[in-house]
Amino acid sequence: MISINNNQQNADELNPDLTPLLDIIFIVMVFLLLTATVKIKALEVELPQTSTQILQTTKADPIAINLVSTEPYWALQGQPINNWDSFTQQLLTEVKTNPNKPVVIGADKKASVEQMLKLLAFLQKNDIKATQLLMEDQP
């Protein structure tokens, strides 16, 4: 039969050593304190200018998508389209009938970023590759 004496030495042997647990708790606390107070800072950078021509002309007549700052926001091949559903259906039809034509996006600089992101998400979802984004060279 196993018997436990009530002396202090045997009681200390039965208690677990909490030192490794305390070490882990302190490490986690330090990690949380360091990551919780980090502020994301953005730097203003000046983008490099290039002397080469940015846009290359394509041999095929491209499918042109235009974003403008006022309603209707969308235009396909220069024709304004009043709502998003009509625009997406016409774009899908155009891409299916002309799969070899590149897709070119031209956005007004005052156009809504929300509309641009909506368009890019739609293109990605339907696996449509936009080969060019139209930009204006600065002198």
Rank of each mutant, 00 (worst) to 15 (best):
M135N: 10
A42H: 15
L33T: 07
L120M: 15
G78T: 01
Q56C: 01
L123Y: 09
P62Y: 11
A130Y: 00
I105W: 08
Q56E: 14
E46V: 15
F31T: 04
I54W: 03
P62L: 10
I4A: 04
P80K: 09
P99K: 11
N100Y: 10
L67D: 07
D23T: 05
Q49S: 07
N7R: 09
D137T: 12
I27C: 06
L91K: 00
P16F: 13
Q124R: 13
K110L: 11
L14W: 02
N5Y: 02
Q138E: 12
K59M: 07
G106H: 10
A42F: 13
L32A: 09
S51I: 10
V28R: 01
E136S: 12
N15M: 13
I128V: 12
T52Y: 00
P20D: 02
I105Q: 03
P102F: 09
M29R: 04
V38C: 07
V68Y: 06
L119I: 02
M1S: 00
A11K: 14
T70G: 08
Q132P: 00
L117E: 12
D12F: 12
K59E: 13
G106W: 14
T57F: 08
I128S: 05
V45N: 00
T50Y: 07
S51P: 03
E94M: 14
K109T: 14
Q132L: 08
T58L: 10
L34C: 13
N6V: 03
V68I: 05
L18F: 11
E136H: 13
Y73A: 10
T88F: 15
Y73L: 04
K59G: 10
L34W: 07
N10P: 02
P48G: 00
L123D: 06
N98K: 15
T97S: 11
Q124M: 03
M29I: 09
T37R: 13
A60H: 07
N82L: 11
S112K: 15
V113H: 14
V104N: 04
E44R: 09
Q132E: 14
A64T: 08
L21S: 02
M1H: 03
Q89H: 07
V103M: 01
L18D: 07
L120E: 12
T52P: 00
I54K: 02
D108F: 06
T57A: 05
I105N: 00
M1A: 02
Q77T: 06
P72E: 08
L120F: 12
L34A: 02
L91R: 01
E114Q: 14
N100L: 13
L33C: 08
I65C: 05
I40R: 11
N15V: 15
N66S: 04
I25V: 14
Q90S: 15
Q53A: 12
Q53H: 05
L134N: 00
T57I: 04
E114P: 01
V30E: 15
T37G: 05
I24V: 12
Q77Y: 06
I105K: 01
